[in-house]
């Protein structure tokens, strides 16, 4: 057989084979994901429950599962939107670092309160503590606890 044609054949078949190599690679990633998903329970790090609210959003009783970083404020781009004229657009950040929770006021007009006292810069938060942004009060809760 003509060597050129034979080579083209090889290239063609190689191309088809590579499509399957890709699928095989994907399959490996998917399997690994499945395994790691089985290892770590899919739960939030904690949750924020609205204990008192004088506005519609968030309404009282709402529960927010928390990722490592949650922003609070009036802007719709916040993780937790506090639709209250007393809240600033970017009001506060609640974050989990290492083994503890921290609340940071982002220079809000009316301030952020932890258990009734204003937060100046950064404050550590424990489960069960109460946070206040605008006229909305949250409680940090342990998941499943």
């Amino acid at each position: 057989m003509d060597p050129t044609i034979a080579t083209i054949w090889v290239v063609r078949v190689l191309f088809l084979a590579l499509l399957y190599v890709f699928l095989f690679g994907v399959a490996r990633v998917l399997l690994r994901d499945l395994r790691s998903a089985a290892r770590e329970p899919v739960t939030a790090l904690g949750r924020l429950r609205v204990v008192a609210s004088e506005v519609d959003e968030p309404s009282s009783g709402t529960v927010f599962p928390l990722d490592a970083v949650a922003t609070l404020g009036r802007d719709v781009n916040n993780t937790i939107v506090v639709d209250d004229p007393f809240a600033s657009t970017e009001h506060a950040v609640l974050s989990f670092r290492g083994r503890a929770w921290y609340l940071e006021d982002l220079g809000s007009t009316n301030g952020t309160f932890l258990n009734g006292s204003p937060v100046d810069g950064l404050a550590a938060v424990a489960f069960g503590d109460e946070l206040q942004v605008g006229r909305v009060r949250f409680r940090l809760e342990r998941v499943g606890g």
Binding site: V69, S95, L106, A123
Partner: peptide, 12 residues
């Protein structure tokens, strides 16, 4: 611990 943390973390 507060002092040990870096400054502002708007979006982390």
């Amino acid at each position: 611990v507060a002092t040990a943390l870096p400054g502002r973390l708007t979006f982390g």
